[in-house]
């Protein structure tokens, strides 16, 4: 997984170098009160779209077939909330 260091690298390839390095993941500098996704099981149709669209792989399927996010991996981007066709996800302040 080495990258060429001789050539001037674009910001993106630098980012990717960091992204897949086996080192530590830096703590994400989030807003003071980050909003996290909260699922409404009564509305969710278990279509798995939110799971598919999370760039941080924070969402996983629970044993009951519904979905939930790992709040440490989640970066509060809101894509899951935006992409759910059924409006089952709301972004909320959680402890």
């Amino acid at each position: 997984m080495a990258t060429k260091s001789s050539k001037q690298m674009t910001a993106v390839s630098k980012l990717l170098d960091q992204l897949i390095k086996d080192g530590k993941v830096e703590a994400f500098a989030a807003a003071e009160k980050p909003l996290k996704p909260v699922w409404d099981k009564l509305v969710c149709a278990r279509c798995a779209l939110c799971y598919l669209y999370c760039p941080d792989a924070a969402i996983s399927r629970q044993d009951d077939g519904y979905f939930d996010a790992d709040r440490d991996l989640c970066k509060s981007c809101g894509i899951c909330h935006r992409e759910c066709w059924f409006g089952a996800i709301s972004m909320q302040e959680v402890e």
């Binding site: 993106v12 980012l15 990717l16 960091q18 992204l19 897949i20 993941v25 830096e26 994400f28 799971y51 669209y53 999370c54 760039p55 941080d56 792989a57 996983s60 399927r61 440490d72 991996l73 970066k75 509060s76 981007c77 809101g78 894509i79």
Partner: peptide, 20 residues
């Protein structure tokens, strides 16, 4: 449904299309 993709997270920005 198993996640081989960097299960411990990564350093890309929130909402990064590249990471997705």
């Amino acid at each position: 449904f198993n996640e081989r993709y960097l299960p411990g997270g990564h350093n890309a920005c929130a909402g990064s299309g590249t990471a997705l």
